[in-house]
Computed example of a mutant assay.
Amino acid sequence: MTTREETLALWHAQEKEVRARLAAPGVSTLADLKAGSGMAFLQKIWDGQLPSVPIGETLDFIPVEGEPGRIVFQGTPDKRHYNPLGSVHGGYFCTLLDSAVGCAVHSVLPQGLGYTTLELKVNLIRTLTDKSGPVRAEGKVIQVGKQVGIAEGRILDAEGKIYAHATTTCLIFPLP
């Protein structure tokens, strides 16, 4: 069994490796988006061939793992993310989970299709603080059809403790 310290060491090493590959934040073009499948587009971002996503820089989270139908983002919440009550704002949870579940749907789309979130349902289970350490949001596809994609996600810490759960419904559409 892996200890918390071993998991944290692995997570920190993986984050460092990914950050070394990412390009500066920016916005990809529609031509970039249309050039390949959803997974190919995401892979180009992760390989530094396309700009990294600005919201990731704003909230300090990055993609750390991905395959078709499953995407994982990692972030370390700190006091910049706090609400007036002294814990991490719910928007941090929601943004991390929306990124994971939305990208999970995107990762299975063929070339020429895009998506947008229609609905995001998030259950906050426990508080995140600056003491929580890195957390991971893992998004997994449940079903993707011609017009609708559904995925679920969780935020977990290095011990496997769950902090939030989400489901999403995404609209699938042809890119213009």
Rank of each mutant, 00 (worst) to 15 (best):
E5N: 15
D130S: 09
H12E: 15
V27E: 15
S99A: 14
D78K: 06
G102R: 03
T167W: 08
Q14C: 05
D60W: 10
D78T: 11
A13E: 12
K16P: 06
E15K: 10
T7Y: 09
A20S: 13
H165A: 07
A20C: 11
G145V: 00
E65V: 05
T76N: 03
K34S: 12
L42M: 06
F61P: 01
T167Q: 14
T95E: 07
S132T: 15
P176E: 08
E57R: 14
R4P: 08
P68K: 04
T168L: 09
V108T: 14
S99R: 06
G112M: 01
G91H: 05
S107H: 11
S99T: 13
V101C: 13
E152W: 01
G133W: 01
F41I: 05
T169F: 00
D47Q: 15
K131M: 11
P51C: 07
A31Q: 12
H89I: 07
T2D: 15
I142P: 00
K34G: 11
E17T: 10
A104N: 02
V105C: 06
Y163R: 05
E67L: 13
T129K: 02
L113H: 09
I55E: 12
V122Y: 01
T167D: 08
D32R: 03
G69D: 13
G112L: 00
Y82E: 10
V108I: 14
G133T: 07
T2Q: 15
I172T: 00
F73I: 08
C103T: 14
P77G: 06
G102Y: 05
G112F: 04
V105P: 01
V101W: 09
T29R: 14
A100D: 07
H89T: 03
G69A: 13
G69V: 06
V72Y: 03
P134G: 07
K16M: 09
R19Y: 05
K146H: 05
G114Y: 01
Y115N: 06
A24M: 13
V88A: 06
Q111L: 10
G153W: 04
E15C: 07
V72F: 04
E15V: 10
L22A: 11
G102F: 04
V27Y: 15
L10A: 15
T169R: 04
G139K: 03
Q111E: 10
L85S: 11
G133N: 05
L42H: 01
A104S: 08
I45R: 01
I155V: 08
M1H: 11
P84R: 14
E65N: 05
V88N: 05
R136I: 07
V64D: 04
L156T: 12
L96F: 06
P51K: 09
S87T: 13
G90I: 08
F61R: 01
K44D: 06
L124N: 10
P84F: 09
D130R: 03
T95V: 13
C94G: 15
F73Q: 04
T129C: 02
T169Y: 00
K161V: 07
P54S: 12
A9K: 10
T95S: 14
G75S: 04
A158I: 07
D98E: 08
G160N: 11
A35R: 04
A35M: 07
I155F: 02
D47C: 10
V88I: 12
E57W: 02
